[in-house]
Design a protein around this nucleic acid. Sequence first.
DNA 1: AAAATTTATTAACATACATCAATTTATTTA
DNA 2: TAAATAAATTGATGTATGTTAATAAATTTT
Lengths: 194, 194
Amino acid sequence: MSLDNNISKEIFNELSFSNEEIEIINAVFFRETFKKGTQLLKAGDNVDRQYYIIDGCLRSYHIDTQGREYTVQFGIKDWWMSDYTAFFSNSKAIMNIEVLQDATVYRILDEEKEYLYNQIPKIESFFRKKLERAFAAFQRRILSELSLTAKQRYLNFINSFPNIEKSVKNYHIASYLGITTESLSRIRKELSHK
Amino acid sequence: MSLDNNISKEIFNELSFSNEEIEIINAVFFRETFKKGTQLLKAGDNVDRQYYIIDGCLRSYHIDTQGREYTVQFGIKDWWMSDYTAFFSNSKAIMNIEVLQDATVYRILDEEKEYLYNQIPKIESFFRKKLERAFAAFQRRILSELSLTAKQRYLNFINSFPNIEKSVKNYHIASYLGITTESLSRIRKELSHK
DNA sequence: AAAATTTATTAACATACATCAATTTATTTA
DNA sequence: TAAATAAATTGATGTATGTTAATAAATTTT
């Protein structure tokens, strides 16, 4: 087969496609690489695309009126990244997305995603299931924000993202946990004593 | 037409179906009514069903090891209710679901939902879009837990659920906001002075 | 390698919210 | 309607985490 089916393999490893389907997939996904520090989305932008991460590390975060940052998500291999609050409602971004470690991603545009779902329904199923898992993860996160102390949330975090500490700064982690970098520092000190 | 298409109308109002499709829908959704106080799900149960709310009010909540309750979701008209953390992974419930106001729901079983999606792909699209909206709402909630004070979250809450205060107790709201009932009481007092 | 910059730590003090205990108000039951 | 129960409020005090400011450590740039 002469067609390039790398994309379909990288994103949909367990699914198999016809040549026509692979052509469609190749046409809607665009491979991009970004350097550490690149800003992929800024609050206020129109959100018309999503990124599927092949390699590297991204984060999405919100900046409040006082300039404080809140990390909503770290994006690593096989995760999707976008400002979902805006993406699903076609409004302006309230999130920022930045590259924490040099990244390779596949980008898909909003309008092409709906086209893709119509052309290849099993891809809609595939993403629906991914979304269900992400939804459940968010529900667990809400619960942990409601019920756990900062220390417990930090321990959960390093459990859930065992290798991420090399890619992200402590203040990124603090902003994900909803605490200050000083508080995280105290927690880390306390844990190192044990 | 002799077929009962109430269910399809109540749940999928904007979609239209063939007679065969309506038969399938009628076969997988089961209408139930529950009295206030009924426990629809207990932590530890197998989660094999979801509820679509036609009328009334439900809530899902988690109880931690110290017996404290955390409300993850209030369910009102046109919302789905389940323990999604368990539902999407076929594990035991960590949530409880209770009826706060006499409720009418449509129940669908896990296995029948996949069957339904296969038989009627546009229903999969329909639910996928609902899930996307719910996902975005959860993302906003995570953000508000990270960045807002209890008072601000309370104001957001009464804004988002303008009529819910009649259906739920203050301690339900407190457990949704992640604060104690005493703190909520103080916040309410402060707001009433203005 | 030195200098410059960014990130992490530490300390003193402030504050939002929790905890515990008592009391008042509202709702349900008899 | 009275009694019983559940829910909400209030006050005194405690604690986790925030704030501000200084310093130390790590990383990047020259």
